[in-house]
Amino acid sequence: MIKVIYFAVAREMVGKGEETLKVENLTVKQLLEWIGSSYPAFDQTGMQVAINEEYAMLDDTVKAGDVCAIIPPVSGG
């Protein structure tokens, strides 16, 4: 199982703040594709993914127990 947290505009597009998925050993790219196919309103343009609070690359692997955050373009300051 993995936990996925959605922030800001990503949360509004999927309609929830977080969820637990019964999957593991998938790539970040596959995770984004799953989100896109599950939530038609989700637009992955500019989205980054953090695994356990570190930015991940598209071909990084999400393992059981990982916490993935969907990070829209940041706008702090």
Partner: peptide
């Protein structure tokens, strides 16, 4: 401030 705007996960509405 330049780095904050690039990498820190904060969002403004």
């Amino acid at each position: 401030i330049d780095r904050i705007k690039e990498v820190v996960p904060i969002w403004k509405k």
